[in-house]
């Protein structure tokens, strides 16, 4: 099999006169933590939304496991093993923590036209719920409504939900955004733990996090990938420093 899990070739996306993605190409190696960095407005989230099928590019190709998925709908991509977390936490605030997790477990186990048996007592949920909650340390919170969780816990829950489908590629869109130092450490530990078991595309602002976790880095400026390189090289690259890191470096 190809050692690239995902390849992006010549991607373009414009919103009216604004070019959000400009002839963008890069590849993600299987098993790596691949970081996507860039200043505000560089088009990171727009790119992520194209990778997950939230929006479609104007031109270019997205190849996933040697398959062209450029025009594939978002939920179909999820079935292929692409999971994501959103920049703003997207959990189901009106459901309990357990129900949230059960929902994502159900999502990955065939159709859900099961109208009768209680969801938390259905076979597949019973089998997997405990482990899924444990993996993100939320077992003790299962009966709590998700809206009552702390910010960091919501993020943990979201990552946990993304993991229930055993994805091959996990896309984390600024997971540390809005989190206190404690939460950042917790989540870094979680990502560290996941490292090697699956491929992670990490969109992140916090350079300390990127440099401590990532294997490869792609730098995005004005919708263009100006560089894709191992993390050590990026640290030394002057262009990156100018474009992104500013004079502080």
């Amino acid at each position: 099999m190809n050692d690239k899990i995902m390849e992006v070739k010549g991607l373009n996306k414009a919103f009216g006169a604004v070019t959000a993605t400009n002839d963008l190409s890069f590849g993600i190696d299987r098993g790596h933590v691949h970081a996507l960095i860039g200043p505000n407005g560089a088009g990171k989230t727009t790119l992520v939304n194209q990778l997950t099928g939230d929006i479609f590019p104007d031109s270019g190709k997205i190849i996933y496991n040697s398959q062209d998925i450029t025009r594939l709908k978002d939920y179909r991509r999820a079935h292929l093993g692409i999971a994501r977390s959103f920049q703003i936490t997207h959990i189901f605030e009106n459901l309990t923590v357990g129900e949230n997790m059960a929902l994502s477990i159900c999502a990955h186990s065939g159709h859900n036209f099961h109208f009768w048996r209680h969801s938390l007592r259905s076979g597949i949920v019973k089998e997997k719920l405990e482990g899924a909650l444990g993996r993100v340390d939320l077992a003790h919170r299962r009966h709590l409504k998700a809206s009552h969780l702390s910010h960091g816990e919501k993020r943990q829950l979201e990552v946990g939900m993304a993991l229930t489908g055993d994805p091959e590629l996990l896309i984390l869109d600024e997971p540390m955004a809005g989190m206190g130092p404690g939460g950042t450490i917790e989540l870094s530990k979680l990502i560290e733990k996941l490292k090697g078991t699956l491929t992670i595309l990490l969109v992140e602002h916090d350079m300390d996090v990127v440099f401590s976790l990532a294997d490869m880095v792609t730098v995005l400026v004005y919708g263009e990938a100006i560089l894709t390189a191992p993390v050590d090289q990026v640290r030394k690259n002057r262009r990156v420093q100018q474009a992104y890191l500013g004079d502080g470096w």
Partner: peptide
Amino acid sequence: SRFGLIVRGCSNN
């Protein structure tokens, strides 16, 4: 039910 879980989820997000 599982079905209900999905539709309740739709209402929220």
